[in-house]
Nucleic acid binder design. Structure first.
Lengths: 338, 338
DNA sequence: CCTGGCACTCTGCGCTTTCGAGTGCCAGCA
DNA sequence: TGCTGGCACTCGAAAGCGCAGAGTGCCAGG
């Protein structure tokens, strides 16, 4: 195991490199950090850290830069999550509180996150499967034509037209509507299929076909709308990527354009707690030079979607993690209120 | 006025520069184009073109590159719109035909346009004010609670809840629904206010309040949803911007993030016909090194929204204009069908 | 009005030199 | 055993230099 001091050296290297964007040498280190030892000692420690793969030199006789493995250790063991200042927190709250609908909430969140972290922000729309049902409405547009409206606790509304196999009476409709709501309101979408499974049986023969049709459309909606959407912002922050950025930025922009890639990226994040994926830990090749900090958010205890940022591996992890966590928390609050 | 040959020289310069991305000299010009005169003559012509401000030299004794004014002349007088090949047209049609809903249409359009032009594509969602009403549905959720659903000819669906001042009977509801539809279906949103103005008067006293409420919500929806949305794609094409792109790309990315800027940009485009804004003709500073090619599209004769591309001033104008026009045409068709 | 010729002006490129930050290693010391 | 100062060495970045080539402007002649 690495000694206390060597870890301290690694921490110092990461911090300096993140700040200056330049390889850091032993002398500069001892000057900027009170390590209490001489450059020579630091050099020895650095040699060990390099053997272990935590740092590397771009070329012989240049300073060291952290490797992905080095950042990993830094994030896991050496760095905390830097909480935001209370003015910052208040600003977040105020900004998000001004949102008028779900689109607006997501849009504001993305802008906020991009601004706070000065990186690319990605926010997933609350997914239907994990949401709960607030209300199911069933409306007769014509004797054999219904409209299904689904409202979620996160503010999403979905509607579908239904052509019934047979005319459906007002009373049957009211009956179905009432039973449907009593069964599913407050439940998670994922649980709906079992909850309504036996519903057709309790209806008259003549209505059974229609009830089945309605249910199948309902279930279909759940599946279809599981398709996740997301919003991204702050791409102009990519220009702060580094000196050699032309070559770095292209694949990143390409990856960001593929919603599928991003959804997978967020999908890989743990459901609870914060996930940090560093450099090559990201499956997608184009993102091998980036780190992704993601976290779930939700209106209640459970995460209904995820949000996060994408930035260079050389990023301020404590600060970024603090911002991501804070934003997720407040978005959750806003969603719970609305 | 410039002689025929001088215009020909300008055209040749633009074409070569667009292709090679390098200042073009007199000798190269005579070699690659059958101008029928010697380099020396071309040099004289170039000197004139430079005096007139159509071309410029980056430094003494380098070749010439077109100025914004030069591109303007090229677009206005020298270049046609290059039609797409028929396989290309068929591919567009097939790709767009696969769309399942409005979001999908817009999404596919953006990807298509970005791919065809290899530039950044911007597509505005069909605006409600210029759309026509396909159907208005009015549903009773409770005795004094209605739901208004608005369906446009471009596939957009909007819904609103309405709390009525007094209970509203089934028959009154059916009556209102029928009258409303008979008046507004097929009409443009902008015309709706006058068309429904006198509707409350024809109802019983007790229902008049509710009818007014419904109408005010309807009008409110029209106003609110006038807020335009848009989708962009192909930002990774910015990496093909040029050699000195780090400095160019930042303001462009920033401009693209501001929906307001983009909407204004498209808004400035003429309602009919294609608009090309070159370099400094764009009001927004960040876009001074880019050109915008925009055109309106719609389900009928009239444009309901606009779409276009943003790229370096050094772009293939005929090809880009061809692609933009073709895509706009086919999107219009798709919208008309659905 | 066009053309060939000529002198001139730059930029870009490759080469060499220099400079300095940073390293590894070693011998000495607590 | 672990820290330290010293020293020789390496190698990239920056600066200077010279050259080749593309391109120009101008002029005299057809």
């Amino acid at each position: 195991m690495l000694s206390e001091r060597r870890l301290e050296v690694l921490r110092a290297i990461v911090q300096d490199y993140v700040g200056t964007e330049e390889p850091v040498g032993s002398k500069a280190l001892t000057e900027r950090h009170r390590l209490g030892v001489s450059p020579a000692t630091v050099r020895n420690d650095m040699a060990v850290l390099e053997d272990e793969g935590f740092i590397a030199q771009p070329h012989t006789s240049a300073g060291r830069i952290p490797t992905d493995k080095g950042y990993r250790l830094f994030v896991d063991k050496l760095a905390g999550v830097k909480p935001l200042s209370s003015p910052e927190r208040r600003a977040i709250q105020n900004f998000l509180a001004g949102a008028v609908d779900l689109d607006d909430v997501v849009g504001r969140t993305v802008r906020l996150l991009a601004q706070l972290t000065r990186q690319v922000a990605v926010v997933q729309y609350p997914s239907l499967t994990r949401s709960t049902v607030r209300h199911v409405e069933l409306l007769a547009l014509a004797p054999a034509r219904l409209m299904l409206v689904l409202i979620t606790d996160t503010g999403r509304v979905e509607q579908r037209m239904i052509d019934c196999p047979a005319p459906f009476g007002e009373t049957s409709l009211a009956d179905l509507r009432a039973r449907l709501n009593s069964r599913v309101v407050g439940r998670r979408f994922a649980d709906v299929p079992q909850l309504v499974q036996d519903l057709p049986e309790s209806f008259e023969n003549e209505d059974r076909g229609t009830v089945s049709t309605v249910l199948s459309v309902l279930l279909e909606t759940l599946v279809e709308e599981t398709e996740e959407r997301l919003m991204i912002g702050g791409t102009s922050n990519l220009t702060r990527f580094g000196h050699d950025f032309p070559v770095m930025i292209r694949p990143v922009l390409e990856a960001l354009e593929e919603q599928v890639v991003l959804l997978k990226l967020l999908g890989e994040a743990k459901d609870s707690g914060m996930t940090v994926r560093i450099g090559h830990e990201n499956a997608h090749e184009g993102l091998n030079a980036t780190s992704v900090v993601a976290v779930g958010y939700g209106s209640g205890d459970e995460a209904v979607a995820k949000l996060g940022v994408v930035g260079p591996t050389r990023m301020d992890y404590p600060g970024t993690m603090g911002a991501v966590r804070a934003v997720a928390r407040y978005v959750g609050q806003i969603l719970a209120e609305s």
